[in-house]
Amino acid sequence: MDELIFFINRVLISGTVLGSIYALGAIGVTLVFGILRFAHFAHGDMMTMGAFTAFVLASAFAAMGFSAPVPIAFIVLPLAMAITALLALGIDKGFYAPLRDRGAKPVTLLIASIGVTLMIQGLIRLIFGSSTRQMYVAGEAKDIFRIDMSWAGGTRPISITEPQVLMFAVTFLAVLALHFFLTRSRLGKAMRAMADNAALAQVSGINTQLVVVVTWVIAGSLACLAGTMLALDVALMPDLAFNIVLPIFAAAIVGGLGHAYGAIVGGFLIAFAETLAVFNWTAVLRPLNTILPEGWALPPNLALVPTEYKLTVAFIILVVTLLVRPTGIFKGAST
């Protein structure tokens, strides 16, 4: 039983946590690609920027003597998301829109987004320094829930932290909201239409400028959501999301760039692939040692990939997907 609990803690929970982050990030990447046709490299740093926005707001609220049963950074999320969305719009106006209006190639926009990445990174470190901070401001404690498993014969509990529970909840809600937005609302359908066939969307009288604005609002606010939840789970640092921007791209590409649902599936796929690849199977299979013949005992470490190569798993999946099926694992990318 303990082996199963270990598996749940190490694979199921951490895989879902990672998958939630990847999925929320990949949705933004995939929507921006679908509407604006370029790989938005600065998305990771938009996540970091969102997390820092939430941090500043939370610190300000805490300084005013505000307290709540859940982390303040979580309470201020709607506001932080709105601010990040505005920042995303500003970045688009300042850096991408002029290039688009000039009719620049997608690759020029990709390079511009790297410029934006560097500027955000530089600014964050200029303002906040390069130290690691806690998103739990003003002495809040990170609650850990331990689910006692002794009734099932386990000696160890299933443990899950407060930010992880919150993360599952908000990811679920965000995905649900996005689903209804894209399938039920006039603007959401217009977004899908523009991703499908931008020229025809324009001919139909769809206000493409408005769709671009909506895209950045969604991408920016989801980036803030993902960044803040990630920072709550781990810690807040200037390279919080730059390190995971490639796995996020891997998720978006595996799901087929431009497909929001594919991005969600891709996010969880990449996350579980990473988690399972570095998982030490001996920990689960150890009971077999009692029935295995002498000299055939399992080695102490039976992971497919050494832990230091965890992120490499995502890169390999990324490269293999690009080579074998660049349109993603789902059929029919409309590009």
């Binding site: 899908r192 239409a193 499908d196 066939n197 969307a201 769809i206």
Partner: peptide, 19 residues
Amino acid sequence: KNVFTSMSVNENLEMGAFT
């Protein structure tokens, strides 16, 4: 390329009424 291939017939028609 005069239809939205990934969208249903009904949604295509709705897009015509966007304005």
